[in-house]
Design a protein around this nucleic acid. Structure first.
Lengths: 287, 287
DNA sequence: CCATCTTTGTGCACACGTTCACAAACGCAT
DNA sequence: ATGCGTTTGTGAACGTGTGCACAAAGATGG
C-alpha cells in the first residue's frame, strides 16, 4: 500500500486532531478557521442589507453559534470591533475574506463529471468568493464532449497541462471510489496541493498536501445513530443478548463465529438478520 | 426570527461542542460516532474479500486513523476483539451496524430535486446500509412530473402524507437557501426529527430535532485558507497595513469607514480591491 | 503445561475547544 | 468633563478528544 509518504493530512472535518500541519503556525485554531466561512456568510447577508455594524450577539445568532465563541474566534484575527458598539460589517467581511485567502483567485478543477460533478459545476457559492472553475475533467469519452454549466468537459489527459497553465492548486474529486486514488495521484503529481474529496475513499497523499473529505453517507449514518437514540433504548433492537457480555460468553461466541467459516457474508453472528443484508453496493457514488 | 424553541442542536461536523443532546447518555463520544461509519466502510471492504480478522493496526490504516484511536473507539462499544489476534470482521460489521442503527430501515425524503437532489437520489451509498428513499419532493411544477433514479418527483403538498404514511424520520434538504427554513419547518411539523441540510442556511429547529449541515463552499474556503498558508506569509497579500495594528490606528480607520457611508459594498476598507468583488451570488445553490 | 510472542484494552498526560464571567474600552447624554 | 450603559476582549475553569505506553489476555509452539 501507499505511495510516497502515507500521510493523511487533515482528512475530515471532525478530525480535530489535525496535529499534522497545525495551521497554528502563527495563530488561528482549526476550529475557528472552520467557522470563519459561517461568519462570512452571515456578514455578507448583513452587508447586502446595508447594515453598518453588528454586535457579537446578533452576528452569533445569525451564524448559529454562541456569542462568546464568536468573540474569541474574532480575537484570533486581531481586535476588530468597537466596545459598546460592535463590529463594522464591511471591514469584518474584508478581514475574514483576506484571512481565508478569498481576496485572491483560486482556480479549481473538478474531476468526474457525473451527477455530483454537474451539481458542483453549477454551484453558485462556488463561483463567488474567489473560486473559479478552471476545468471540468472526465475519463469517460461519452461525457467528454458535453458541457456543464457553460464549460466544456475535457479529457483527463489534459489534466497536467491545465493545472500547469492555470496554476491550479485545488482539485475536487467526484469520481467513483475506484478511480479516486488514481486521480488524486495525478492531481498531486501535476502540482495540486489541496484536494476536496467526495468519493468514499481514504486518500493517501504525500506531506504538504491537504485533503478534506465530504461524505454524504457518513452524515446520514450519524443522523441514524442519533435517531435511534431518540427512539429510546427500550426496544433494545433485540439481538443484544451477547453484546457487552461478561467475557466468557463473548469468547465462546467468537469461537462459533470462526468455526462457521468466513466466506462472504457469514450471517451476522446470530439473530436479527435485519433487512435484506444488501449486496453492499459500497462502490457506487453519484459521479 | 425563530419558531418554536430556537435550539440549533448539532449543527455541523466541526461542532464538537454538541453540549446539547450529548449522545453520551450512556456512552459513545460524538467523535467516535463520527468515525464508526469509516470503520464500517473499511470492514465491509474486508468482508467482501472474505478476510476473517483484522488487527487494529491494519484496520486503522485502512480507515485512515491511528490504531490507538481505533482501539479506544471500539472499547466504547464493548470488548469485541481477541488479544493476540485482532477483530472478527463479520462480527464487527454487525456490531457497528447495529450501534449506528443500520440494521433497521430508514426511509428518507429528499426535498429539492435540482442537480444535487438528483445526485443524491442516484447515490448508491444512500440505498445501501438501510437508507431508503421514500420520496423525492419539489415545489416547482416543471420538475414535479419528471423522475429521478427511477422514482417519480412528487409535489411538496404530498410531504405530510408521505412522512406520516411511511414513518419518515429523516429529511434531506437540497433546496435553494431561501426555501430551506420553510421546508425545514414543514418537515419538522410533519414529524421528521433528523435533517441533513445542504442549503447554505442556518436552520432553526425545536429541541429534539437534529440538524447536520453539509456545505460545499465552506469546505473549499477552509482549503483556501490552508493553501494560502502554504504559499507563505512573505507576499503578505498586502493590504495588511492596519491589520493587528496597535489600536489608535484601527480606531481611526473605523471612523473613516463609517464616514464613507454604508450603502452596499462600500469597498473593502482600503487597498486591494482584489478580483471583481463579485456581486456576491450567495443565494444560488445547486438544487 | 510452560514460555514466548502478538495484540488488545485502558490509565494517564496532554492538547484543543468551549463556556463563563468580568474588567477594560467606548459612545453618548448630561 | 463626568457618569452611565453597552459591548468587546480575554483569563481561567472545564470538558472533550488524542496519543503514549504498558499490563493483561489470548494464541502458538515446544
Amino acid at each position: 500500500m501507499a505511495i510516497g509518504r502515507p500521510t493523511q493530512s487533515s482528512s475530515q472535518t471532525p478530525d480535530a486532531g489535525a496535529a499534522r500541519r497545525p495551521s497554528r503556525a502563527r495563530g488561528i485554531p482549526e476550529a475557528t478557521v472552520a467557522r470563519l466561512p459561517l461568519y462570512l456568510r452571515a456578514l455578507t447577508a448583513l452587508s447586502e442589507r446595508s447594515v453598518p455594524t453588528v454586535s457579537s450577539e446578533e452576528l452569533a445568532t445569525a451564524a448559529g453559534v454562541n456569542s462568546a465563541k464568536l468573540r474569541k474566534d474574532f480575537s484570533y484575527l486581531g481586535s476588530y470591533g468597537t466596545r459598546g458598539v460592535g463590529y463594522d460589517v464591511e471591514y469584518l467581511v474584508y478581514q475574514i475574506s483576506r484571512e481565508l485567502g478569498l481576496t485572491q483567485d483560486w482556480p479549481v478543477v473538478i474531476v468526474g463529471i457525473g451527477n455530483l460533478g454537474h451539481a458542483l459545476a453549477n454551484y453558485g457559492g462556488f463561483a463567488s468568493r474567489g473560486f473559479r472553475v478552471a476545468a471540468l475533467l472526465d475519463a469517460d469519452p461519452a461525457v467528454v464532449g458535453s458541457s456543464a454549466a457553460g464549460l466544456p468537459v475535457r479529457h483527463m489527459d489534459e489534466l497536467e497541462a491545465i493545472v500547469a497553465a492555470q496554476q491550479v492548486s485545488i482539485g475536487v474529486i467526484t469520481t467513483p471510489p475506484g478511480a479516486a486514488q488514481q486521480v488524486c495521484d495525478r492531481l498531486v503529481e501535476a502540482g495540486v496541493t489541496s484536494i476536496l474529496n467526495f468519493a468514499p475513499t481514504v486518500l493517501t497523499v504525500p506531506d504538504g498536501v491537504d485533503v478534506r473529505k465530504v461524505d454524504l453517507s457518513i452524515e446520514l449514518q450519524i443522523l441514524a445513530f442519533h435517531e435511534q437514540r431518540k427512539a429510546g433504548e427500550e426496544p433494545t433492537q433485540d439481538g443484544g443478548m451477547l453484546d457487552r457480555a461478561p467475557g466468557p460468553v463473548r469468547a465462546a461466541a467468537a469461537k462459533l463465529r470462526r468455526a462457521a467459516g468466513g466466506t462472504a457474508k457469514a450471517e451476522p453472528a446470530k439473530g436479527k438478520p435485519g433487512k435484506g443484508t444488501e449486496g453492499e453496493r459500497s462502490a457506487v457514488m453519484p459521479a
